[in-house]
Amino acid sequence: MRSRDGNRNFSLRLCSIIIFSSLTLTASEHLISYKYIVKDATLYNETLLISNAMTKCNGTPQNELILLNKNSKNLKQLIFENSEEFIDYMHKLGLHVEHKETTSNLQNSSTTTLTLKTTCFKVDFNDNFARIAPLK
């Protein structure tokens, strides 16, 4: 016959396994790319592309971002609701900068392109928040 303490440990383990498996099962992988073009000091074009990963991504999650979530499972919707925060986060992850400037007969024109190359992100959806982390 089991003691009371032993049963308690067993139930705690079982609960933790269920919670952990539920968390891992809700995790999904998404491919995100971001690009914006500034022409002559004015924003010209901005593109944020999000899609589900068709194949499994390799790497470990790093520098995670936690966004407030209202029981949603749609990443696009979640990112558009928190676009400013997510764009700041992408700036911190690192962007490729490409700048071209031409001065012809004393007339200047410039184009700056900032790009986040397509990166695989692991996203964990929960009831009140979502965790987003790039896989590297």
């Binding site: 700041d88 700036h91 911190k92 992850l93 690192g94 962007l95 490729h96 900068v97 490409e98 700048h99 071209k100 400037e101 031409t102 001065t103 012809s104 007969n105 004393l106």
Partner: peptide, 18 residues
């Protein structure tokens, strides 16, 4: 007749803060 200056910058910038 014509004077042209072209400049080009390419880099990867990480952890820049506003």
């Amino acid at each position: 007749q014509k004077s042209t200056i072209r400049t080009y910058v390419q880099a990867m910038v990480k952890n820049a803060n506003v």
